[in-house]
Design a protein around this nucleic acid. Sequence first.
DNA 1: GTGAAAGCGCTAACAC
DNA 2: GTGTTAGCGCTTTCAC
Lengths: 357, 357
Amino acid sequence: MQEATPAPRSDGGPQAPKAVSIFDVAKEAGVSHQTVSRVVNSHPKVKESTRTRVLEVIAELGYTPNRMARALAGGAVRSVTVLTSDTSLYGASATLKGIEEAARAADFTVGISVLDAGSAQRPAEVAARVSRPGEAVLVIAFDAPGVRAWQALPAEFPAAAVVERPEDGSPGDRPQVWLDDRAAAAQATRYLLGLGHESVRYVSIPSSTTRIGQRAEGWRDALRAAGKPLPEPLDGGWSPRSGYLAARSLVADPTVTAVLCGNDDLALGVLRAAREAGRDVPGDLSVVGFDDAPQSAYVHPALTTVRLDFEGLGRGCFGMLLRLLEPETAPALPMWGEPELIVRESSGPAPSLRART
Amino acid sequence: MQEATPAPRSDGGPQAPKAVSIFDVAKEAGVSHQTVSRVVNSHPKVKESTRTRVLEVIAELGYTPNRMARALAGGAVRSVTVLTSDTSLYGASATLKGIEEAARAADFTVGISVLDAGSAQRPAEVAARVSRPGEAVLVIAFDAPGVRAWQALPAEFPAAAVVERPEDGSPGDRPQVWLDDRAAAAQATRYLLGLGHESVRYVSIPSSTTRIGQRAEGWRDALRAAGKPLPEPLDGGWSPRSGYLAARSLVADPTVTAVLCGNDDLALGVLRAAREAGRDVPGDLSVVGFDDAPQSAYVHPALTTVRLDFEGLGRGCFGMLLRLLEPETAPALPMWGEPELIVRESSGPAPSLRART
DNA sequence: GTGAAAGCGCTAACAC
DNA sequence: GTGTTAGCGCTTTCAC
């Protein structure tokens, strides 16, 4: 009775000591394995004394249900796989973090599968990335590969997604969460316009849809509302490097005094391009980012940016899935924060106004 | 024969269409389910014509082996779970990326479980994070929680780890991979000393062990070799913010002309503290980072730093595991890059030398 | 309330 | 080479 854990292997081989099964517990507790199953799954109809006894033995033996067997037998799986692109981008990684957090709290296992450009476009390819048919799936669909995977996901998978914006009823009525990027971009643009800038240019991240992205839309909304002409957005990619490359021509134009960027990495690239072109930020040129990555407050000049609650969004996304999976017992959906403009050092009054001062 | 995929559900319910099993394939191909199993697992003793026929039927029916059943029956699991701390740090996330890449290439499913300060210290807690006993585990042990989990991991799990440096035989003879942080830090320090700096200070990341970290050791090695006194390292945490806080007193001291940082985020914090203290970088003060995050080349001043091949390291770690799991068939271990000092704008000659020039 | 029987989809060991 | 028989550990029925 003291032999709580199996003795460590004394022979040389990589022999895994057999794990304790439901039968071991049953035998030890003097009940059937079925009763143990009931206790583990907290069925209502077990006598209190029996339940206590079984729980004791479980603790004593260190029993853990085998997830594979449970799944095979048709029980609840408590496992999600998340489909995402490049996890090294701040948005995706913070969202993943939120998902993992919520999932672990709900005792879910989380799997991860990284999407790349050409991958997972057809239903079968998407399905192949999930460990078993019918397992739950979460997709982080901030970019095109993500959106394609989301749309191609076969109907038998319970799923939810984080999207740039809800597609008009595309993938059935599946749960989706998103942040109001469009409004946030409009707000940032209005802020810049309010500073006296004649216009605001936009260096964009790739859109997740065929259309122009939501952040670009918001930027145009604000420009349009202010009666300004609508310049073409500049395609900036995702990285500081691509932002730098894209912005070189832009910053060479002295009439450009304010630039909104699709993310903070791009803004970093723009900042460097501006410096090399002899533009002073914010005296000469204002630069605003998007996302508020942890570094952004510490770069020079500290980035004015839009803070986005990616972690909260990830938690919310998992919450949606849980509500789908277990409508009875799922807790209330956690809320996530609204986008928020954080003004720091990289933005300021238009040069014309400054001159006048 | 045309019914390749099961017809989509026509009723309303969330009824998962029953997946095609090995028996469906067997029946269709006119063989036993066992033969199908052999084909799927590419056993040598199957007649070529049979194999072809079975493969055809598999494609036709869209059959995918059920991983759970396979695992339950004692077959190869082809699944790893990665134990890691904070995935929002560049080092961890890049390593994870490398692991996921290699794992997907080897047709492994990857699970992820995030460690935090107090978690996963005892074997049972660690085991509980893995879906089933005996499943493979990879741990990213750059920090204390990671190392603790690695040490507490029960023997029955085939495992490998990415570590700061190999512990002296601690967790059996389990495979480990690492980067030579110590040599790299020494190199960076020598570089700074070579620039004429009287001494070099170090702002440290938390060490994964009870001792001082490897990067700090390397820094001390170089200082000692140069016959310099050994100042205390400054505890900097992981984030730009904590680096900033820690560095404020340091940069206020005008005798300090060179600072090595435990990572690039800290360096960002140090840079800001320096700027606020009126120190010019690199004229007045040299700052060197560690990791070469994608942003580091674009911040101002661009960071001199040590490039570390985290992705390669992650791939290597998975390779070690694969070799453990499948000694016969595992491909050669992929190699990863050596640390490399990248000199950019944040470091330069000691002020004394500049004056003389 | 509890137990007994059946079977989830697969691979192992053994027959032939 | 290929088929047959046993389970893997669990949850489902269905009895009692």
